[in-house]
Design a protein around this nucleic acid. Structure first.
Lengths: 399, 399
DNA sequence: CTTATTTGTTCATCTAGCGAATAAAACACC
DNA sequence: GGTGTTTTATTCGCTAGATGAACAAATAAG
């Protein structure tokens, strides 16, 4: 979090690339990062010294090209492990990775989390994480990263507000830390998603990327040059609670006409139920099956349902329009489970977008839809935990 | 525009502080910027060498304190001058400053600019600037900075779209450059305003500051750590054209329900005319007097007019809410002529803001209203031109 | 006149990065 | 098999930029 020394910044860039791209030879690293071979050599020497990087042992030749064979560097996978967690409304997603970032195990648990008391919630989470660590025999667990919905203060480890929680200002990181005895990093889930997606698409790591995640809610992760934009306190914003229609449907935040109230799964599901004249839905968060059924009906031509998606598309278009006019991003990514109905949303989405932005402005941003599973959330938060650890390791050694 | 070398960055920080704070001794500069006296000495030596800075000649003692007296450094005012320009709809505002940033002369011209042909517009502007330069005998004119409404591509000197212009993609900087033979820097007016205001309020230069300018239109300048946020292409955004009410009043961009269509002077004036059952207004841009009259009537209790301002305040609240939920700024500044009616806007403004943001989020940003004359626009753009020149000078010498 | 105090400069040192020379490890070719 | 060629990696000396510490300068207080 503190400003990085030039050395630390270079170190981070190097390790970031290596994590993303896998084993690389020193020359390749130099080319990719625009550093001289001398600098790479110097930097990697200390990283190998510290045991963070390992040199490829295989004497295997490069094959067709002549010349001295490349010696590739890769992450040591024996320095410990990290657990990544995502918490939904009634689901906990877990992932164990080793220090090289490789997936070692994953699990998900169905467990209602909504409106638990603060202490109870943390007990449940801590127990789930501890059990996962026990069962997977997590070798030398170094840290836990947790992605969740809501306004998350990453620096202080506090969740100021979340649709999952009754409580406000929950000191989640310290609470879990006390229970688990490990450092805990928390992050807004849309931010974690944005980060993970940008790791996989190089073009998203340059310029400004706004990543709109549509699913249980609507979140926004914003990246500048591949780094998460941090506002005054929180990271990703609960962009879904921007109010777009003054007298729109009810939102779970208590307001009316929020973006979420049109686009989120719970909203679509609720409205679909109402259309069918069924009683008000008891399931607050519909399952994937229920959503698929609604989408299928709409695709088949059910007029009222199709209209629901038309309206949702329009709101999505307005939302993206606001993003374009405010942040002027180079890239806009629409991701999350909500993209399953993108074909239904698209016509009204595009019309709404076009009607409120001038072409010159719209042309600046590439808009892409990225299918992204909830896996990416744990991946994103685990990546961030790992790179914090990279830094800590160096700082510990320096002290 | 290119990335700065560490040296250039330090140089810029030093010169920025000196321009803002006036003459300073080397120790003071060191304290303010967190640099060692050694570094300051080294850096200032070359700046004095280059003739950019001058050391105070007065042998006058510091007075009460004993010790070696401070020798203060200040900008040379003989290195040339810069003209700053703002173009409104029917007004051109001009300002001449010397190389030290001190105001030497200013003038404004009433001249209808709206919907002129591109060449004609540039002729008019160039002639106004040239005449001003002639009349003020501008000593060694080094550059011209111009602030205008619209989507301004500062790097390429192009105005992609502007409410003033019929034409799109007007190469304004190069056009004026050809006519005047001087480098021309163009900038969005809300950005220039944001920059100028931040120069005067130190707290706005740390963290993120969103500056909403309400006047002829509604613009947004966004600063991160005192530097203008640059989007993919344009600087400040025409935030006024974010659509907030789908079936709202007509906006001059062609759309309906844009923020501007409620808040801008032209919109309030037009709607006030309609209320009075007068014929559709012929003056597109009302003068200050006309606006004052409307505000006075509303203050006096004219119900329909008061309602106009109530609605405008609500839209302003929604707009600030969007800014808070998207950018999460540390500071929000509302400025421009539109603040004249802030007392009328405030009740509905605050209600709207509160209804759509959670208190934790709202508490992050200080919201302040800054009375700001249009002078500040030319000041802002002149400042930016001067600091570009600081760099150019060094780069020229280096080459 | 001496001393204390504050300001500004000089100098040796440190970090970070780089170009150039050099070493190392393979293949290609005679 | 020896010799050159090619590619990779390391070493070394140099430079930019910043700094702490010693030092020089200029004043007020006593």
């Amino acid at each position: 979090m503190n400003p990085l020394t030039p050395r630390e910044a270079a170190r981070r860039r190097l390790l970031d690339t290596l994590r993303r791209e896998g084993p690389m030879a020193r020359v390749e690293i130099g080319q990719q990062l625009g550093m001289s071979p001398a600098s790479v050599s110097e930097l990697t020497a200390s990283l190998v010294d510290e045991g963070i990087l390992v040199t490829e042992e295989t004497g295997e030749s490069a094959g067709l090209i002549r010349g001295r064979p490349k010696v590739r560097l890769y992450f040591a996978d024996t320095l410990g492990s990290v657990i990544g967690v995502w918490t939904g409304f009634n689901r906990i997603e877990l992932r164990l990775v080793d220090s090289a970032g490789r997936n070692r195990a994953s699990r998900h648990i169905e467990h209602p989390l909504r409106n638990l008391e603060a202490e109870e919630l943390m007990d449940v989470l801590a127990e789930a994480i501890a059990a996962f660590a026990r069962d997977t025999n997590a070798p030398n667990l170094k840290a836990v990263g947790l992605a969740c919905q809501g306004y998350v203060d990453t620096r202080d480890g506090i969740v100021a507000w979340s649709p999952v929680l009754g409580a406000r200002d929950l000191p989640l990181a310290s609470g879990l830390n006390r229970r688990l005895g490990k450092p805990v990093l928390i992050e807004n889930d849309a931010s974690a998603m944005a980060f993970a997606i940008a790791q996989r698409h190089s073009e998203l790591r340059s310029g400004r990327t706004a990543c709109l995640m549509v699913g249980d809610g609507v979140g926004l992760g914003f990246l500048i040059q591949g780094e998460l934009y941090r506002g005054a306190r929180f990271g990703g914003s609960e962009f879904g609670h921007v109010r777009l229609r003054r007298s729109g449907p009810q939102c779970r935040c208590g307001g009316r006409g929020c973006i979420e109230a049109f686009l989120a799964d719970y909203a679509l599901h609720r409205d679909a139920q109402l259309i069918d004249h069924r009683p008000a839905p008891t399931v607050l968060i519909p399952g994937e099956d229920a959503m698929d059924a609604i989408v299928a009906q709409a695709r088949a031509g059910h007029p009222a349902l199709a209209n629901l998606f038309r309206e949702a598309g329009e709101v999505l278009g307005d939302a993206v329009g606001i993003l374009i006019q405010t942040l002027e991003p180079d890239h806009i990514v629409i991701c999350g489970p909500g993209t399953r109905a993108m074909d239904l949303l698209r016509p009204s989405f595009e019309a709404a977008l076009e009607s409120q932005t001038i072409p010159e402005l719209r042309a600046l941003a590439t808009i892409q839809v990225v299918e992204s599973s909830m896996d990416l959330l744990t991946e994103g938060v685990v990546m961030q935990a790992l790179r914090e650890l990279d830094l800590d390791l160096a700082r510990l050694r320096a002290a």
